[in-house]
């Protein structure tokens, strides 16, 4: 039987852009171009490698987000995923991690799965809690923050590298895993992958398709609330030491003042 892999990905504002909050303190998605979260590219890559090793596997890439989030799905499809699911609903605006995990879990159950692969965190929210929440909602084991992952004989195994130790972990499928940015560089879409992506199926779902009530999600349904947000102050100009014979002494004095030496 085919190994069903679902990769949960997020469409985020380009981290190299000038990112801001909107007036309601949600992420401003209009000011900066969006893209597939870089950390989720690692998840897509690992899913592709697992699928290549398996005799028969099918990768569904899943996202929750506005219309433009299709770009993230398209990118994953051009990398080689087989099909996509896009959950889009106006009521989703402002949904927190807990609400997102509910929507993702329902969509994953709707799609059917043996293995869910996530990135270690999103590059915008950077909470990194979603894989654990998903596993809890789905009632399956979680094997998170892996730098190496493999699927064999109905089990998923992997290595989690900590500061002090490396752990070898294993779980029976179905399971949720998350992979780190150490798991291996994501491939670029090939020309054939880019051309094939347009023909691949993208299923669109809304909250009613998933049996979710509007008040369970969105800003109103969120368990966490952003009270205020302040822009980080601009970096102040550094100190420039011009060497006119005393440069070394001035540098040393600066470092001593900052308690570096």
């Amino acid at each position: 039987m085919s190994l069903r892999i679902v990769v949960a990905v997020k469409y985020v504002p380009d981290a190299t852009g000038d990112r801001h909050f909107a007036e309601d303190l949600t992420t401003d998605r209009d000011a900066v171009d969006g893209l597939l979260s870089e950390l989720d590219e690692y998840a897509v890559e690992q899913a592709l490698q697992i699928a290549e090793e398996a005799d028969d596997a099918e990768i569904t890439v899943l996202t929750v987000g506005p219309e433009d989030a299709k770009d993230a799905l398209r990118k994953a499809l051009s990398m080689g995923a087989d099909q996509a699911v896009h959950v889009e609903d106006d009521a989703l605006h402002g949904t927190d991690a807990l609400g997102t995990s509910l929507v993702l879990a329902k969509a994953i159950e709707h799609t059917g799965y043996d293995l869910v692969v996530c990135g270690m965190a999103s590059t915008d929210g950077t909470m990194g809690v979603l894989p654990a929440m998903l596993a809890e909602r789905l009632g399956v084991p979680q094997v998170t923050l892996l730098s190496e992952v493999k699927v064999e004989d109905g089990k998923v195994t992997g290595r989690r590298d900590g500061d002090a130790a490396s752990e070898q972990l294993e779980a029976q499928l179905p399971a949720v895993v998350s992979v780190t940015d150490q798991s291996g560089e994501a491939r670029y879409p090939s020309f054939k992958g880019i051309m094939a992506a347009k023909k691949k199926k993208v299923e669109s779902l809304d909250l009613s398709d998933l049996g979710i009530e509007e008040d369970e999600v969105g800003l109103a349904g969120a368990w966490t609330k952003v009270d205020s947000a302040a822009e980080r102050p601009a970096r102040t100009a550094g100190t420039i030491v011009t060497d006119e014979g005393e440069g070394g002494k001035q540098l040393a004095a600066f470092l001593a003042e900052q308690k570096f030496i």
Binding site: K75, I194, A197, K198
Partner: peptide, 14 residues
């Protein structure tokens, strides 16, 4: 087209 824009961004990234 979307494919051409994607091709541009992929080649540029490489």
């Amino acid at each position: 087209s979307e494919e051409h824009r994607t091709l541009r961004s992929c080649v540029a990234a490489l």
